[in-house]
């Protein structure tokens, strides 16, 4: 018997699970290795950092995909799946070797593709902008205790003192002790990165969630590309000239 016919989950697609989103998720190559039935033991939830602080349960994700109810799945794709931190603790602890994290990853991609993600991700516009323009996910000043219920007392203390600490560390900290990125990438690195966003289709995908943002970023990218292309040409010419000599 082949592996495919042995898996009861694969069989159920045609038989009882009729919904569009359900079918799309089950088609994903990761699902077969991520769901082997579920003991409902709760090991995943107990180990899940997201479950400890947010409305999210990896066990529910597995159960939901086993049941295949379209409405529940749609609701999840619009909301709860975005609370997973993608740490994969569930995968490495599950006694059935399920991976809610992989299921969530597949669901997120499909949610973006199918236009279900915009509302859940609206709060992430600044993060998306920073990723697209500077290659950083977060800048230290974007972090505040309100947004991170999982911070411990030490982190909250450090965060409250950051301005004073910066002053002490660097005399004359640029820009009134405010930082707009976690680390600085070189212009050429950003240019390369943005080329990858474009060529790989990632930019287009991000555009389905943050259309206005992508318009702005694209304009910025075009300007930068012109500048960088000119610089590259200049360098090439110099190289040629030095060869001729």
């Amino acid at each position: 018997m082949s592996e495919e016919t042995k898996n009861p989950i694969t069989e159920k697609i045609e038989n009882t699970k009729g919904g569009h989103f359900y079918k799309e998720i089950m088609k994903d190559f990761r699902i077969k290795e991520s769901l082997h039935g579920c003991l409902n033991c709760g090991t995943c939830v107990a180990n899940c950092p997201a479950a400890a602080f947010y409305d999210y349960s990896p066990r529910e994700v597995c159960q939901m995909m086993i049941e295949g109810d379209e409405e529940t799945i749609e609701e999840y794709m619009k909301g709860k799946i975005w609370n997973c931190a993608q740490c994969y603790s569930c995968k490495y602890r599950c006694p059935k070797e399920n991976s809610a994290a992989d299921i969530v990853m597949a669901m997120r991609e499909i949610a973006v593709r199918e236009g279900l993600a915009a509302e859940a991700l609206a709060g992430y516009t600044r993060i998306a902008k920073l990723v697209l323009t500077r290659g950083n996910q977060l800048a230290p000043d974007m972090l505040s205790p309100d947004a991170f219920p999982d911070w411990g007392p030490r982190m909250i203390e450090l965060s409250s003192k950051k301005m004073e600490m910066r002053e002490e560390l660097f005399e004359g900290f640029p820009g009134m002790n405010v930082v707009d990125r976690a680390w600085a990438a070189e212009d050429y690195t950003i240019y390369e990165m943005q080329k990858i966003w474009e060529e790989s289709g990632a930019l287009e995908k991000v555009g389905t969630v943050f259309p206005f943002l992508v318009d702005i970023v694209q304009e910025d990218m075009e300007d930068k590309a012109e500048e960088m292309d000119a610089k590259i040409e200049e360098k090439k010419a110099k190289l040629e000239a030095s060869k001729k000599k």
Partner: peptide
């Protein structure tokens, strides 16, 4: 299912889900 055991202030602390 018992999921994890750690030591907190010299006492055993377990994690699980009340499913």
């Amino acid at each position: 299912r018992g999921a994890e055991v750690t030591l907190k202030n010299q006492q055993l602390s377990l994690r699980a889900e009340e499913t």
